[in-house]
Nucleic acid binder design. Structure first.
Length: 660
RNA sequence: GCCUGGGUAGCUCAGUCGGUAGAGCAGCGCAUUCGUAAUGCGCAGGUCAAGGGUUCGAAUCCCUUCCCAGGCUCCA
């Protein structure tokens, strides 16, 4: 009998009878693996266990607790969900249902334009569990495109995908749904349900089960808001009950550090509905944190050679016609105010005004790079459905700078900017950065190819010199130039896009900006836009979530609270507080009208970095009981001088690489 | 803007079949004086998001608007 030889991931070889499947390979390796196996990688390609293995193939068995395994579980769960929905709503049309991070979704169109409600989730989930219990095998079939069209005759979304494949107009997304080449593949997991799919899938529905449906949502067919809106159901799926529970637990933890919740609990800011959507008021405790952030930002910009400017919140429409904002972003701007001398708009950007400052007089090459900086408050009419706490807001303040430089200065300026950006972000407790380099959108851009290439090279060179990991986002640049965006990783592993460095060839042109060079000729400067925080509001929100509200001492609204054990210690408590306050510490006293435990608890819930408890012994010897945030082990008998010195050292140390 | 779900005291929430408003925490007052995460008692707190409609009667049913959440789309 003919034998084939397969290579396993560890480099060892196995001989099997010709015609063996990936499942047979798993069985040949071990009974336990065969039981665990979901799918296989054959020569790098994910395949069903039922797929036959060619001679000499490299074969890896995919088990549930792996990235490949989870992806397959999730994708198969999506099929089961579609099957459940078609059982519950006969005639439902199903569109696409991929695996996504942590789970899966599927888009549907229900008969009669019906919509899912939250209650439907439980019904769908129950039906999914029935399908899982039925132990239905997933079986793959390949067929011609025309046969595929016949199979899905009553499924218009599938027909559209197959037709596009037939016409050769398919894209990656379509390929994910079908298969490459002149055939389409379908998976049936029962007589009653067949879906267009490239696969692979788990061998049987009984291999699924650690899933939970999360929510229903509307989603446009093919992501196009001009096309029909479908009903999307999201679910999460995992390899084990424990992994599912861990995921759900993490969601709860993330909810606890939601900046909107913390902002209310810690009395930092609020969004009064009377103001209108997307507009916040900062309360004293939020305001003092913001002031710390702004002071720090200003100090660093001053050191960094920036010049401070101030510009108004609104401007005549002519300015935004010149800048092009009215042409490109009118819908995103607050509507016009008609005045007796013209039409005015709230500013959505600071750049046009900074350009006016540049243009206010003749500029020499000796002044370049000219770095204009402003904490500039802008207003953008974000669409109602897109608002999200501080993360997406209609009135916000950018730590905005525009740098005017020569072409020769560009690279050096970007390199120093990257260092500046990360240095400032580190001071706020972020240490993991990744970057995206967005390149020219060939459909939409201004400026010569040469300058695009040059500036893209300058951005790339700076990233590489920093050893900063980056991804290219092809075609993602603004129309006026390429950009670098910097993402940070937070304490629970989420990434947030914060800083941006953008080249701009458009504004200098539109505002006819010039400088006189050493050659006594007029030249056009290049303009860089950059923001470190992005917006102060958003950055503040990210900080709150990163620290779960436990802001580092230098930022904390209240740094120290002093508690006397009894009323007769209150005077000493006030003395301690007065001493700290004199040295610039934000401190308060809560007098002993309530039990100590209750006052400690309140201070802890307010996430105050240091709670000082003073009693008889402390009054007698000038000491403190120091209860630090996050510790359950207070130190007694610390001298006031010792505490003050350590506190100041901590406050001053932030942002220094050697601090800790 | 679109889809789904919401809006009740400062906060978190209950409120059944349509019969006129409830708790805990926070606040205020009094008592309590306590060594490291909740002392007791009392008081006050509401145009039930806003406006309109149905009804003898609306927090509850219907309509409109505003605001919020989760998605989609968008994000200079």
């Amino acid at each position: 009998m003919a034998e084939i030889d397969v290579v396993l991931p560890d480099g060892s070889h196995k001989s099997l009878p010709a015609g063996s499947t990936a499942g047979d390979v798993a069985a040949a390796i071990g009974a336990r693996l065969a039981k665990d196996a979901l799918a296989a990688r054959i020569d790098g390609v994910l395949s069903d266990l039922a797929a036959s293995v060619p001679d000499g193939a490299h074969v890896g068995i995919v088990t549930p607790a792996s990235d490949d395994g989870r992806e397959i579980l999730r994708h198969s769960s999506a099929h089961v969900m579609a099957q459940a929905v078609t059982r519950l709503w006969p005639g439902a049309k199903y569109a696409i249902g991929p695996a996504i991070e942590n789970g899966f979704y599927y888009d549907f169109e229900l008969p009669g334009g019906a919509h899912f409600t939250d209650e439907d989730l439980a019904r769908i989930e129950a039906t999914m569990r029935e399908i899982v219990a039925e132990d239905q095998p997933f079986t793959r079939r390949e067929m011609s495109i025309d046969d595929g069209l016949a199979v899905f005759a009553d499924q218009p979304f599938k027909i559209e995908i197959i037709t596009k494949v037939k016409e050769g107009a398919d894209d990656d997304e379509d390929l994910g749904e079908v298969s490459a080449g002149p055939i389409v593949s379908v998976y049936a997991n029962s007589e009653g349900f067949v879906d267009l799919c490239r696969g692979p899938h788990v061998p049987s529905t009984k291999r699924l089960g650690h899933f939970k449906l999360m929510r229903v949502a509307g989603a446009y067919w093919r992501g196009d808001e001009k096309r029909p809106q479908l009903q999307r159901v999201y679910g999460t799926a995992w390899e084990s009950a424990a992994a599912l529970a861990a995921h759900l637990h993490q969601l709860e933890e993330a909810e606890k550090r939601d900046h909107r919740r913390l902002a209310t609990e810690l009395d930092l800011l609020s969004f009064p509905s009377e103001l209108g959507g997307g507009l916040a008021v900062w309360h004293p405790r939020g305001g003092i944190v913001r002031k710390q952030m702004e002071d720090f930002s200003r100090a660093r910009h001053l050191e960094g050679g920036y010049e401070f400017v101030v510009t108004p919140h609104l401007a005549n429409a002519r300015l935004f016609e010149t800048s092009g904002h009215l042409g490109f972003y009118k819908d995103g701007m607050y509507p016009p105010m008609e005045m007796d001398n013209g039409t005015y708009y709230m500013k959505p950007m600071n750049c046009p005004m900074h350009c006016l400052i540049f243009r206010s007089r003749a500029r020499s090459y000796r002044e370049l790079p000219l770095r204009l900086f402003e904490l500039g408050t802008v207003y953008r009419y974000e669409r109602a459905g897109t608002l999200h706490g501080l993360m997406r807001i209609r009135g916000f303040t950018q730590d905005d700078s525009h740098i005017y430089c020569t072409e020769e200065q560009l690279e050096g300026e970007i390199i120093s900017l990257l260092g500046f950006v990360m240095d400032v972000l580190r001071a706020f407790g972020f240490s993991e950065f990744t970057a995206n380099l967005s390149t020219k959108d060939p459909e939409k851009y201004v400026g010569s190819d040469e300058i695009w290439e040059k500036s893209t090279d300058a951005l790339r060179g700076a990233l590489e010199r920093f050893g900063l990991e980056y991804q290219i986002k092809k075609g993602d640049a603004a129309f006026y130039g390429p950009k670098i965006d910097i993402d940070v990783r937070d304490a629970i592993g989420r990434t947030w896009q914060l800083s941006t460095i953008q080249c701009d060839f458009n504004h200098p042109e539109r505002f006819d900006l010039e400088y006189v060079g050493a050659d006594n000729q007029r030249h056009r400067p290049i303009m860089l836009h950059r923001a470190l925080f992005g917006s102060i509001e958003r950055f503040f929100g990210v900080l709150l979530e990163h620290y779960a509200g436990n802001l580092p001492t230098w930022l904390a609204p209240e740094q120290v609270r002093v508690l006397g054990v009894r009323n007769d210690h209150d005077d000493y408590a006030r003395e301690v507080a007065a001493h700290l306050k004199e040295t610039g510490v934000r401190v308060s006293v809560e007098v002993a009208n309530e039990p100590l435990g209750a006052r400690i608890r309140r201070a802890k819930m307010e996430k105050i970095p240091y709670v000082l408890v003073v009693g008889d012994e402390d009054v007698a010897s000038g000491t403190l009981g120091v209860n630090a945030r996050g510790s359950n082990d207070p130190s007694r008998g610390v001298s006031l001088g010792e505490f003050t010195t350590a506190l100041h050292a901590e406050i001053l140390a932030h942002g220094r690489p050697d601090a800790d």
